[in-house]
């Protein structure tokens, strides 16, 4: 895969978000219980926000984007890969989603290293930071659930 233009990158990022929306929506359809359906649909909604953000990106927006330090709890980083299975418990759903965000962030971080143009680098850094925010949100939910249980 090669990213030569701003548009190439944005198109790719939008498609990645669309894939995530499809993944969570499909999972919600396969769930028997309203609660699990709701959890997956909520994740799909989050991805829709990202998709909308990326669809409306232009070079000026990226130039003005504010970078900050997003804490990384690294809860998913040491976990093995996990696949969706219908009826999986709540904490496993969170693990699945965390892992997906981890991969997305890592992909954009790798891209930063690969591209040469400063604008392209900045765009990938922005995409990485957006994924980091999602990862932190999910890992915080997970950490709260686990802390209560004694983990």
């Amino acid at each position: 895969m090669s990213f030569t233009t701003f548009k190439d990158i944005v198109t790719y990022a939008v498609e990645k978000e669309a894939e995530a929306i499809r993944f969570y929506t499909d999972a919600s359809r396969q769930e028997e219980y309203a609660a699990a359906k709701g959890t997956f649909l909520a994740f799909a909604e989050e991805e829709k926000k990202h998709k909308a953000l990326f669809e409306n990106l232009d070079p000026q927006l990226v130039a003005n984007y504010k970078f900050g330090k997003i804490p990384d709890l690294k809860r998913s980083d040491y976990m093995v890969e996990t696949a969706y299975r219908p009826g999986m418990p709540y904490v496993d759903i969170l693990r699945l989603a965390m892992k997906r965000e981890e991969h997305a962030k890592k992909f954009y971080d790798d891209c930063v290293a690969l591209v040469e143009g400063e604008d392209q680098k900045k765009l990938f850094q922005m995409l990485s930071q957006e994924e980091s925010k999602h990862k932190l949100k999910l890992e915080t939910m997970y950490d709260d659930a686990m802390a209560k249980a004694g983990d």
Partner: peptide
């Protein structure tokens, strides 16, 4: 018909 919450 037994309703569960988000966490099962």
């Amino acid at each position: 018909d037994l309703k569960l919450n988000r966490k099962g």
